[in-house]
Amino acid sequence: MSVLVVVECDNGEVKKSSLEVASYGSQVAQMLGTTATAVAVGEATEANLAKLGEQGISKVLYDAEPRLKDFVNGAYTKLIAAAAGKEDSKIIVLANSNIGASVGSRLSVRLQASLATNVVELPKANGSSFTVKRGAFSGKAFADVVLSGDRKIIAVKKNSIEALHEAGKTATVEAFSASLSDADFTDAPKQVVMQDQAGGILLPEADKVVSGGRGMKGPENWGLIEDLAKALGAATACSKPVSDVDWRPHHEHVGQTGITVSPNLYIACGISGAIQHLAGVNSSKVIVVINKDPEAPFFKAADYGIVGDVFEVLPKLTQAVKELG
C-alpha cells in the first residue's frame, strides 16, 4: 500500500498548499515504510508533476480528462477513490481547502475512513494507535485526535507544514483514467469567476499578510495597505467590521467567522484585536501590530508592535521594505 496524496493544480502549477500536502504524505509514508503516490486534480503539466519528486513523491497519477480542469465534486471524489483503490491506499492526505474538505468528507463515507481536517502536525503513530493534532475552537485551541479504523483521511491546514525541497528528485507521471462518465459531472460548475487578486497572491495561500481594520477609517485609504503588501509580496486582509460595512470583500475577512490564516508574517494595521479576530490569526508565526491605542488588546498577542498612527507608520514601512532591495 502507498500513502495517497491529493495534489491540486491550477494553470499548470501545483498549488503551494499541495506542495505542503505532498511533503506531509511522503513523510507519513516514510514513517510507515512505504512510498507516496500523488493523484493530481485540476490543470497540470507533466513537467510540474514530475517535480513533485522534490517533495518525496514517487509516482503521480494524472487523468487528463479536460472536464477535470475545474472542481467537480462528484468526479473528483470518484477519481480519488479509484486512485486509492489502485494503490491500495489506507491513508489519503489532502489540503484543508474548499476542494479538499468537499472531496475528503465524501470519500470518508465512501471508503469508510476516519477523517481529520485542519491538521497542523505530522501524525504520531504508535503501534495500532494513530493520532493527529488539529486546530479547534477556531484557532483558540488544538485537539489531539485518535483516528480509529483501518483507513484514514487527513486534511492538512495550509502553512502548517514546511514543504520539502530535495533538488533533482523526480516522480514518475503515469496516465490514469477513472473511467468517468457524464453522470459524474452533473454538479460541474456552469461558470467559474476568479477575483482580481492584488499582486496575484491568494490570502489562504499567502505566507505574508497585511491586514487593515476600522482604524484605516475608510476604503479610500486601503492604498496604504496595498502598497506595503505589494512591497512585501503579501496578500491583503481585513477585520470583520471592515467587511461588514463593505469597505472590503468578505473573502478578505480574517477571524473566527471568516477565514483562519497562519502565515509566517501577519501585520495588523488599525485592528484592536477582538478575541474573534485573534482566533483567526494566532497561529501566524510572527504578528506585528500597528495601533495608535497602546491599550489595544492585540499588542498582547503580538511579537512586534508600533504604537502610532497607521497613516504615518505605513508609508515608512513601505519605504523601508523598498530600501531593503
Binding site: S108, A113, S114, L115, A116, T131, A136, G139, K140, A141, F142, A143, D144, V145, V146, L147, S148, G149, N282, S283, I287, V289, F299, K300, A301, A302, D303, Y304, G305
Partner: peptide, 17 residues
C-alpha cells in the same frame, strides 16, 4: 470514527517588542 484524546491551548507569546 474519531475521538479527542486531549485538548491544548496555543503557546503563549513571549511579549511584544
Amino acid at each position: 470514527r474519531t475521538e479527542v484524546a486531549e485538548y491544548a491551548l496555543p503557546p503563549k507569546k513571549q511579549g511584544v517588542k
